[in-house]
Simulated assay, not measured.
Amino acid sequence: MGLFNLFNNQLSEVIEWKNQDPRVLWYKFPSERNEIKNSSKLILAPGQGCILVYEGKGENLLTEAGTYNLKTDNHPFFTTLARLRQNFESEHKLYIYFFRTAAIVNQSWGTGNPIKYIDPQYNLPVEIGLNGTFSYVIKEPVHFYKNIVANQDTVSTAAIQDIINNRIPQQIVAQIAQKKLGYNEIDSQLPILSTDIKTAVEQDFKDLGLEITDFKILGTQFDSNTQRRIGEIADLTTQNQAAQQAGLSYVELEKLRALRDAAKNEGGLAGIGAQLGVGMELGKQFDLQKEEIKDNIQAEGDFVEKLQKLQLLLRENIITQDEFDALKKQILNKI
C-alpha cells in the first residue's frame, strides 16, 4: 500500500447516498473494510433514512434529514499506527445502510397466469387476467433489514414487485369467490374490489416491513375460451329475450326455426322425403304453428307490443313481408 493511499484511507469522510436511483429501495454504503472513521459525517437527504450496524449488533435508526457526526472506535491515524501488523484493518466494523423513506408509487402488478374460477350465475369456467398499480413505504426498516435484506448490498423496487406479484392473485381469487361475482359484474366492481384486496394484502406487506398505501385494479382481460363462452351466453340470452317478446319460449322459437328451415330446404329432409309426404307434413306443421302465433299476437297486448312481435317474426323469416304488412294494417285499423 502506497503512503498516499494509506493516508487517504485513514481520513474522516463524508458519507451520503449520492445520485439516488429511484429503482433502488435499499443501499449499502460502500466501504473497503467497513471501517468508518471517528468524526465522519453522515448526510441524510429528504426522502432517505439510514440504519447503522456497529460491531455486528445494535441497529441505530436515523430517519430525519440532516447531518450527523459519527462516533466510532476507529480514530484516524491512531488506527494506522496501532494496526500495522493487521494490514491496517480494524476489528471495529460499522455497516451503513441507506433506504428510501419516500413512498414508492405506481408500481405495476399483473397476474402472470390467468386466474381461474367458476362463474356463480352460469356455472361456467372463467379465466381472467388483471393488472394495476400499488404504492407502499418502508414502515419497519429494522424488520425489513433483518428479514428481507440479510446480506444484500442493494434491494431494488423490482425485487419487491416480484414478491407482491406472487401474493396478489390468491387474494383476488378469494375476493371474487367471497363476493360471488359473475364475469359480467367484475368490471363494475373494480373500485370496491381494489379496496378489499388492499385490505387483504396489508398483512403481506406488514410481514415484509412495508405498508401498502394504495392499490388499484386498472384492467381485466378474459382469455379467448372465456370470451367465446361469454359470446355464446350473450347470444342465447338475446334470443331468449327475443322469443319472449313474441310470446314464445326459447325452445318454441327454435322449434319454429327448425320447421321453417326444413320446409324450405329442397335438398334436405323435405326434399328427400317429398315422395313420402314428409316435406308436405313439415310444411303443414310450420303453417299451423305460424297461424297459431299470428292469432295469439292479435288477441293479446297493446298495439306497440303486437308490432314488436310481428317485427321479430319477420326478422326470423317466419312470416313474409306481405303477411307482416297485412297483419300490421289489421292491428292499426283497430286503434
Rank of each mutant, 00 (worst) to 15 (best):
F286Q: 03
Q275V: 14
R229L: 11
L313Q: 01
D214I: 05
M280D: 06
E254W: 01
D214S: 10
E232D: 08
I293H: 00
K255L: 14
L218A: 07
L210K: 02
E232R: 13
K216V: 15
K294G: 02
E232N: 08
E300F: 12
Q311G: 05
Q275R: 15
L313G: 02
A270G: 02
T226N: 10
D287H: 02
N225F: 13
G279F: 01
D295F: 14
A274P: 00
D223C: 01
L256K: 03
R228I: 13
R229E: 04
E211V: 05
L218V: 07
G277W: 02
I217P: 00
L310T: 11
S249Y: 08
T220E: 12
I297Q: 11
T220P: 00
G231Y: 07
A274N: 05
Q289T: 04
K306C: 07
E254M: 05
Q308M: 09
L259I: 15
G271Y: 01
R257G: 02
R229K: 08
E281P: 00
G277S: 00
G271I: 01
R257F: 04
D207K: 10
A299K: 15
G209E: 04
D302G: 08
D204L: 09
Q245K: 15
F303Y: 10
Q289K: 11
I233E: 06
G273E: 03
I297C: 13
F205T: 09
L282P: 02
Q244V: 14
G267Q: 14
D302R: 09
K206Q: 14
N240D: 12
L307E: 11
Q245T: 15
G273I: 06
E281Q: 02
K255H: 13
L307K: 15
F286Y: 02
D204P: 00
K284Q: 13
L269V: 10
G219Q: 14
A299I: 15
L218R: 11
K264E: 02
L312Y: 03
L313K: 04
L259K: 14
L236A: 07
A243D: 08
Q239G: 11
T237H: 02
L256R: 03
D287T: 06
E300Q: 10
L307N: 10
D207W: 04
D235Y: 10
L269H: 01
K284W: 10
L276E: 06
F286M: 06
L253V: 05
L282N: 06
T238W: 07
G273K: 07
A262R: 06
L208A: 06
G209T: 01
G283R: 03
G279V: 00
L313N: 01
L310D: 09
N240Q: 14
A234Y: 00
I217R: 02
A299C: 08
Q285K: 13
Q285T: 08
Q239H: 09
D302C: 05
E300A: 13
L218M: 11
L253K: 04
A243F: 11
T213D: 01
R260K: 13
G267H: 12
K309A: 15
Q241N: 15
R229D: 07
V278S: 02
K290D: 08
L307D: 08
L288Y: 07
D287G: 03
A258V: 12
A258E: 09
G273N: 05
L210N: 05
Q275T: 14
E291L: 12
G283A: 01
T238G: 03
D235R: 14
Y250H: 12
L218T: 13
K306D: 04
T237F: 00
G301D: 07
D207I: 06
A246V: 11
R229W: 05
L310W: 09
K284C: 06
T237D: 00
